[in-house]
Nucleic acid binder design. Structure first.
Lengths: 328, 328
DNA sequence: TTGAAAGCGCTAACAA
DNA sequence: TTGTTAGCGCTTTCAA
């Protein structure tokens, strides 16, 4: 394995010159630069990360701790972020984190042994105040994706409120006036903004909100099913259900099937996330797509060049058969 | 940030002694060991990974390149492997890899800059001969998960053949004699073993295989749907369809719905993988569960202590409503 | 069983 | 614009 010294000798220059070329620093004459590049090529030289880390006080590592939202979300963000990292000579270290009393310790060890140059956090970790506060103590640059709280670090998030309003508008357009809403625990930052969007949508359509049509869920299928049962058991049940994520919407879908209701004829159902399961559901689920992979890429880019890619926070309503008859 | 020198001074010993204690080397008197540990505690010392890597010729890093099977599979393996790594003071670096002509270069750069102490490969990468051969050149210890080919590195895989046979036996038990099979491209190593298992199952039931009942797929939903259409259009169609993965089975399910067939009355459908979508499907999909997270953990453990956890290759038939009426 | 010295491969700071 | 020198924080080797 050739070292930088070998390259320097091969090119007939000093190690520092090689280093300058490799790190794209200024003040190197094109002539020398080419000589160095040729030597690098000839020897098949690759810099040793560990040595660069130690000498340069940079780790070239971004840490990506995650807990357990959906697998699709985790990997999409991961892929986007990892690709951007690679283009910058960085690497992504992903660590699953348990939400127990050792969480802070785990993170602390991660930071202290790896010395990451940055960190990316997705829900639910990005909204855990104690965690974020802990990270801030180490001054690790942080980008939080889809965080709802105002905490340390930069934040990238789509406009949940207006999306939620758009979805309600769509349901109203389909002729619905009684629209049930299944929303996660109000602690969760998403809940607030999506709830406000729901109210916005109703207001724009001149519909008064009804407390009985708003049911709590916990992000999972079963809680969505429970909420849907309660809604459908109402003396005057809704004709449409909007769940604040796909899993809960799929729970509602299951209940509708179990009761042999026609979808969307008897009950229209909409979700949020564009999970793979939403596409495969029968009927396919109307939902909201966020550009998750772009989100990951944008998060990494913010850490590495400080710029926010505006495309990362675009979103799109996907109208499918669970709210629009005869769609495919 | 305290260094090992600070700890040594605090404890009144040499750096080397501290190093010995930290690395659990022999030949340290308990007395000194305790003194050192106390100093470590007192100062909140954490070893710097980069320095250890550089001095010790070990990276404490396992690389986990992946392409694009299902997200659930990727993250399950990732979680298992990362946790095991953590317990051993290792870290997992995950890199998405495109299947283009730059793939080998990408991997080469990964190996040369990170110098990982080991590598874990899942399908489809684990069965790409050129890739594995390339890795073998760098002598990076490798564990391949679910690989079907006989290549460099250790291999962990469930017994696809016998599982596949068990599934056919289950369908036969449900009264089916005409069982369609959707299998991936024969290039794919899984295809061979699952196909053999299918034949085994038929043979045990005294059923002669029919070429028209065996259709190719490409792992994705759409190809499963196509294959199912062909099967159902047969003059004498099957009463059950077994797809070699869940996505293809879900495609078959969609087709059955579109044709208003009752499931499993008119057509029973079974998959393979226990993907999240298989649970959420309507009706829920009979499938095979592999302990994916354990598989990841076992792969990391093989690299780090060389032992295979036998639980990692257990599997289980999950009988659900798509083949068994009135199940939930 | 412990310690001293040398160096892993690179970059920072400074000098030329 | 280029080169020299001195480390980064740890482990290895070898000596005590």
């Amino acid at each position: 394995m050739p070292t930088i010294l070998d390259v320097a000798q091969h090119a007939g220059v000093s190690m520092k010159t090689v280093s300058r070329v490799l790190n794209q620093e200024a003040h190197v004459r094109p002539q020398l630069r080419e000589k160095v590049m040729a030597a690098v090529q000839a020897l098949g030289y690759r810099p040793n990360l560990a040595a660069r880390q130690l000498a340069g006080q940079k780790s070239f590592i971004i840490a990506y701790p995650f807990n357990n939202p959906s697998a699709a979300y985790i990997t999409d963000v991961l892929m986007g972020a990892a690709r951007t990292c690679r283009d910058h000579g960085y690497h992504l270290v992903s660590e699953p984190v348990e939400l127990d009393d050792q969480m802070l310790q785990t993170i602390e060890r991660l930071i202290q042994t790896l010395r990451p140059d940055g960190m990316i956090l997705i829900p639910p970790l990005c909204d855990m105040a104690s965690l974020v506060e802990h990270i801030s103590r180490f001054k690790v640059p942080l980008v939080r994706i889809a965080g709802g709280l105002d905490l340390y670090g930069k934040s990238i998030a789509i406009d949940d409120r207006s999306i939620s309003r758009d979805m309600v508008a769509h349901l109203v357009e389909q002729g619905h006036r009684r629209i049930g809403f299944i929303l996660p625990h109000p602690d969760h930052a998403l809940a607030q903004s999506r709830y406000r969007g729901y109210l916005d949508g109703l207001e724009e359509a001149g519909i008064a909100p009804e407390a009985s049509l708003i049911r709590p869920g916990r992000f999972d299928v079963e809680s969505g099913a429970q909420a849907a049962r309660t809604l459908l058991d109402l003396p005057h049940p809704p004709t449409a259900i909007f769940a604040a994520n796909d899993d809960m919407a799929l729970g509602a879908l299951q209940v509708a099937h179990a009761r042999h209701l026609s979808i969307p004829g008897d009950i229209a159902i909409a979700g949020f996330d564009d999970s793979p399961a939403s596409r495969l559901a029968y009927p396919a689920l109307t939902t909201v797509r966020q550009p998750t992979e772009l989100l990951g890429a944008a998060a990494a880019a913010m850490l590495l060049d400080g710029e926010l890619d505006p495309r990362a926070i675009e979103h799109k309503l996907l109208l499918r058969a669970s709210t629009v008859p005869d769609t495919d």
